[in-house]
Design a protein around this nucleic acid. Structure first.
Length: 250
DNA sequence: AGTACCACCTGACGGC
DNA sequence: TGCCGTCAGGTGGTAC
């Protein structure tokens, strides 16, 4: 579930609730999502406070002294800030604060990651993540696509090309742009690339703002396309379930 | 370079 | 009510 807009939401949620409070304890009910040994996570954070939040693509970082908490939400990750003893069902890591509140990293399916990194920029470089689309302009977007011959949906999903787009917003962007998910990137004209980028930004901005998007609402084979009346098709592109309208996405 | 496939893990949902 | 197959919005490795 969490793509760039949802992670942006978690970043704001983290900043609103969990900064500037002393961490008195870190609990790890399920260590399977840790990218570092438990002691390597717990010890550097105990007694510290989070002071700053950053997001790059689907990755979230929170500074604590000279180290950074790194969160990736996988398919089912989320954050819950709460008081009292009702631990969320799928809490995998819990930060206990001095003000008696808790921040839980929840993740039903365990595809998420919690760890510490020295420096987010170094992490981003080491993983070869592309730029965040919310910090990119059209010229930069063109540069990222230059020389790439793959299917356009595969490129949008590749975190090394641009970081943060997932399956749903890739579909939504292509739907609005009238571009078929399997079109080769090097077959797109200048106007199409421009439209693609404008729609990508718009989709992400609207999703961050909490607005509803078409394909997310009705993803069903055979549903009428609300834009042109064609029949929505379900297929596989870039290895992922893909919904599109064959009559206006070419 | 690009793609197809499998694996990771757990729960929800529909059909019988 | 219960069992079973299918599906899920992410990613990494491997084999072509």
């Amino acid at each position: 579930m969490p793509e760039l807009p949802e992670v942006e939401g978690y970043a704001r949620y983290f900043a609103r609730h969990a900064l500037r409070q002393r961490i008195i304890r870190v609990r790890v009910p399920d260590p399977r999502i840790l990218s570092v040994p438990k002691a390597k996570l717990v010890k550097p954070l105990a007694g510290r406070e989070f002071t700053e939040v950053r997001r790059h693509g689907k990755h979230l970082f929170a500074r604590a002294g000279d180290t950074w908490l790194h969160l990736h939400f996988g398919m089912s990750g989320g954050l819950a800030y709460y008081r009292g003893n009702e631990t969320p069902r799928f809490a995998r890591v819990i930060f206990d604060f001095a003000n008696d509140a808790h921040l839980a990293f929840e993740d039903m399916r365990l595809f998420g990651v919690v760890g510490l990194v020295d420096d987010p920029d170094a992490f981003i470089a080491a993983r070869d993540l592309g730029p965040d689309p919310m910090a990119l302009d059209l010229r930069g977007f063109r540069r990222r696509l230059a020389g790439k011959r793959g299917g356009i949906k595969a490129l949008l999903l590749s975190q090394n090309v641009i970081a943060g787009v997932g399956n749903l917003y890739a579909d939504e962007t292509l739907f609005r742009s009238g571009i078929h998910p399997r079109r080769a990137a090097d077959d797109l004209g200048d106007a199409e690339v421009k439209s693609l980028f404008a729609n990508l930004r718009k989709v992400l901005r609207e999703a961050i703002g909490g607005r509803r998007l078409f394909l997310i609402e009705q993803r069903n084979e055979g549903d009428p396309c609300p834009r042109c009346g064609g029949a929505i098709r379900r297929t596989v592109a870039a290895g992922r379930t893909t919904y599109f309208c064959p009559s206006h996405q070419r």
